[in-house]
Computed example of a mutant assay.
Amino acid sequence: MPDRQRADARRNHARILAVAEEEVATHGAGASLEQIARVAGVGSATVRRHFPTRRALLEAVSRQRIELLCARADELASEDDSRVALLSWLGDVVTYCVEARGLAAALSYEGAEPGSVYENTCSAMMEKAGDPLLRRAVRDGAVTEGVTVADLIALIIGITSAAEHHPDPAARAERLFRLAVTGLSPQPGR
């Protein structure tokens, strides 16, 4: 947001974002933009001026968690075991996606137009953060070559979406994640 923005516009932006965080936490990615505007005490046009698309709003709501996940990837880069580092980070992504309703939608490429000003910056940040962990795990033979961070994020989005309405979404997402990591076949020695 430009520093030259008027004080009332900055206040509106902050108020809309605070209300949006609460609404998304309660109602998920489908939170009503009109309800957000009403609770924030602004018109729908003001919400759309600050956040021209639902994706832009979800990304703004998710920004702090995305930054924490990126910092976590940096921390794990020094872990001795590349597989443990990657799986720890992915486990954190699963946990955050379950805890922060709307985060999985913010990471999804659904509805993002390539080359658009509103292209998916959350996913781009996550891909950049996770890439060193993944490249190291591939190099060490701990992950199959050709897997991308985008693949892994898509898998997590699917897992957290499938678990969202389960009575215990965190436990269900964790189980599905572990199943995805270990596969269906029994592996000797593991």
Rank of each mutant, 00 (worst) to 15 (best):
L134K: 11
T182I: 06
A137R: 10
V19H: 04
S108N: 08
L155W: 04
A60C: 06
S161K: 14
R10T: 02
R4L: 06
Y118Q: 14
A60F: 01
P186R: 14
M1S: 11
N12F: 03
R135Q: 14
L152T: 07
A29H: 08
G130V: 02
L133Y: 09
D3K: 07
G41F: 01
A162T: 11
I153H: 09
D80N: 08
E119F: 03
A29V: 01
R72V: 00
G183I: 02
M126D: 08
R10S: 08
V93P: 06
P52I: 01
T148W: 05
G141A: 10
G111T: 04
G102F: 03
M1A: 12
L76G: 12
M126Y: 03
A106C: 07
A37V: 03
Y118V: 00
V147A: 13
L68R: 14
T26G: 05
P132Q: 07
G115K: 06
G115D: 09
R11K: 09
A173D: 07
M1Q: 13
S116H: 11
E145K: 13
E34C: 00
V143N: 08
A56W: 02
Q5F: 04
D92K: 11
S62W: 02
A106S: 14
L69F: 01
D3H: 05
A60M: 03
N12R: 13
A129L: 06
H165P: 00
Y96L: 02
T160N: 08
I16S: 06
C70V: 14
V47A: 07
P169H: 10
R139M: 10
R15Y: 00
R54F: 05
R11E: 15
T182R: 15
V24T: 02
G141W: 06
G102A: 09
H166R: 12
Q5R: 12
A14W: 00
G30V: 01
A180R: 07
R6A: 13
V143S: 10
V147Y: 06
S123R: 15
L69P: 10
P114E: 10
A14F: 01
C97K: 03
T121I: 06
V94P: 05
V98S: 12
T53S: 15
A7D: 13
L103N: 06
Q187T: 11
L68W: 09
L86W: 11
E164N: 12
T148K: 10
L90M: 13
M1I: 02
I153M: 08
P132L: 04
G43L: 02
L86D: 12
A37H: 07
Q35M: 02
G189C: 03
V84R: 15
V47G: 09
F177K: 07
V61R: 05
I157M: 05
D74C: 03
E99W: 05
R10H: 09
V149D: 10
G158K: 05
V19A: 05
A31C: 08
S82M: 04
R38W: 02
L87T: 14
Q64M: 07
G111S: 10
T95D: 15
R11L: 13
L107V: 01
S88G: 09
D151L: 03
T46A: 15
A105V: 01
A171P: 02
Q187D: 12
R175E: 15
R175L: 15
R4P: 00
R178D: 14
S161A: 15
P132H: 08
F177T: 10
Q64V: 08
L103R: 04
I159F: 07
E113G: 06
